[in-house]
């Protein structure tokens, strides 16, 4: 009895999670990296002007967390390389969309686990009496950013799977390709904190972010399946 695509998806997600939890250091390092950077920034920059505080907060939290996550993206398929799991998966008639979506779900779960604490801790460090840096919308925006970045992250991770110079190769491809998502996310978050929810520009940028996410997720699935298909 062949499993349906959804069953495959669920199984792969559970397998992925289990593989991640085996090596706890891999899980925890992005969060630790981001939090350390936050504390260092706080020491280096000291007290900031109100106008600067928002921009610095976003750079420290969103960008740092995303950079830390990029490191773990590039190693997404590492567990599958062990014991030749990846090759075995390809010989089994697994639906490639399920495989992509499973890894993508993993990215979303683990990415949020890094991103949310970082943003909360950053808001806590930089808060002042008349300016709160905490906003549900900003958290939502960062998850949206993760959605777009994760899609390309999975695709690039497979592309660079057999390549040698992955440390430098992955970022050099990853950041140019994901620029639109980063731009839209940072602008939305900045406008949300600066101008409030009524700004028409904010709605535009969030709309663009959603549009970009859609395009990237679709492209990701299409090209991933194209890559894995061997006929």
């Amino acid at each position: 009895m062949k499993a349906t695509a959804f069953d495959q998806y669920v199984t792969l997600v559970r397998q992925g999670l289990r593989a991640e939890f085996v090596d706890k250091e891999r899980l925890v390092s992005p969060v630790l990296f981001a939090l350390t950077m936050l504390i260092l920034f706080a020491f280096a920059l000291g007290d900031l002007d109100q106008s600067l505080r928002i921009k610095v907060y976003l750079a420290e939290t969103l960008l740092t967390a995303l950079f830390a996550l990029q490191l773990s993206f590039s190693r997404l398929f590492e567990p599958d390389r062990q014991d030749r799991v990846f090759d075995l998966l390809r010989t089994y008639p697994v639906s490639y969309s399920s495989l992509f979506l499973a890894k993508y779900t993993l990215v979303l779960i683990l990415g949020s686990a890094t991103l949310i604490p970082t943003m909360l801790f950053g808001a806590f460090l930089h808060q002042s009496a008349n300016q709160s840096l905490f906003s549900w919308l900003v958290l939502g925006i960062s998850i949206l950013a993760l959605a777009g970045l994760g899609a390309l992250g999975v695709l690039l991770s497979v592309l660079t799977l057999k390549a040698q110079a992955r440390q430098i190769l992955y970022p050099i491809l990853y950041f140019p390709l994901t620029t639109p998502v980063l731009l839209a996310a940072i602008q939305s978050a900045r406008l949300c904190l600066e101008a409030g929810v009524t700004s028409p520009e904010l709605k535009s940028w969030i709309g663009l972010l959603v549009g970009f996410d859609t395009i990237y997720i679709t492209l990701g699935i299409l090209l991933f399946t194209e890559l894995m298909d061997e006929s």
């Binding site: 695709l155 592309l159 491809l173 140019p176 639109p180 663009l208 492209l219």
Partner: peptide
């Protein structure tokens, strides 16, 4: 060949999106 081909397609697809987003920025 396959990996580079996919990257080639990805680059071409992404450049207009990058251009537009930076323009709006």
């Amino acid at each position: 060949t396959r990996v580079c081909a996919v990257l080639g397609i990805l680059i071409f697809a992404d450049v207009p999106i990058i251009y537009k987003s930076v323009t709006w920025w």
